[in-house]
Measured scan of single mutants.
Amino acid sequence: DEIHIHFNGVTIEFRGLTEEAKKALEEAIKRGASEEELKELARRLIK
C-alpha cells in the first residue's frame, strides 16, 4: 500500500501507511502544508 503526493511538480512517495496516516497527510495537504512539513509528518507517521 503506497501513496503518491504530487506537490509543486515533485512526487513524494510513501509506502506502508495506515489509513489514519493517509488521512493525516491528506488533511495536511488540504490546509496547505509545505513539502518539508509533509515529509516530517510522514516520518512521524511511519515510525
Results as ranks from 00 to 15, higher is better:
18 T>S: 13
41 L>Q: 00
3 I>V: 13
44 R>I: 14
45 L>N: 01
45 L>E: 01
44 R>L: 14
16 G>D: 14
13 E>G: 07
7 F>R: 02
29 I>F: 13
26 E>R: 07
45 L>I: 08
16 G>Q: 08
10 V>K: 07
20 E>K: 08
47 K>M: 15
15 R>Q: 14
19 E>A: 11
36 E>M: 07
9 G>I: 02
13 E>H: 14
12 I>A: 04
21 A>S: 09
25 L>Y: 03
28 A>E: 04
24 A>M: 14
6 H>W: 10
7 F>E: 04
27 E>T: 08
1 D>K: 10
27 E>Y: 08
30 K>L: 11
16 G>M: 04
31 R>W: 09
4 H>V: 12
28 A>L: 06
39 K>I: 15
38 L>S: 00
6 H>D: 10
19 E>T: 11
1 D>L: 14
44 R>E: 15
25 L>N: 00
10 V>R: 03
24 A>D: 05
30 K>H: 10
6 H>T: 12
25 L>A: 01
35 E>M: 15
37 E>Y: 05
1 D>M: 14
21 A>E: 08
5 I>Q: 03
11 T>A: 07
14 F>V: 08
20 E>M: 05
43 R>P: 00
11 T>Y: 10
37 E>V: 03
21 A>Y: 05
41 L>S: 00
33 A>W: 08
33 A>S: 07
35 E>R: 09
29 I>M: 13
19 E>D: 10
19 E>W: 11
19 E>K: 09
21 A>T: 07
42 A>L: 15
42 A>P: 00
18 T>K: 06
8 N>K: 04
24 A>Q: 14
15 R>I: 12
31 R>G: 10
10 V>P: 04
35 E>C: 06
23 K>Q: 10
46 I>H: 07
7 F>Q: 04
2 E>Q: 13
9 G>C: 02
6 H>C: 06
2 E>D: 09
8 N>W: 07
10 V>F: 07
35 E>V: 14
13 E>P: 07
36 E>C: 04
43 R>Y: 14
8 N>A: 08
24 A>E: 15
3 I>R: 05
21 A>D: 13
46 I>F: 09
31 R>K: 12
30 K>F: 11
20 E>L: 07
23 K>I: 12
45 L>P: 01
21 A>N: 09
39 K>S: 05
29 I>A: 12
6 H>N: 12
7 F>M: 12
27 E>S: 09
40 E>V: 05
41 L>V: 02
8 N>E: 07
6 H>P: 03
14 F>I: 15
11 T>S: 10
16 G>R: 03
31 R>A: 14
18 T>C: 12
29 I>N: 02
29 I>G: 02
32 G>T: 01
1 D>G: 09
16 G>H: 09
18 T>N: 11
34 S>L: 04
37 E>K: 02
4 H>Y: 11
18 T>D: 11
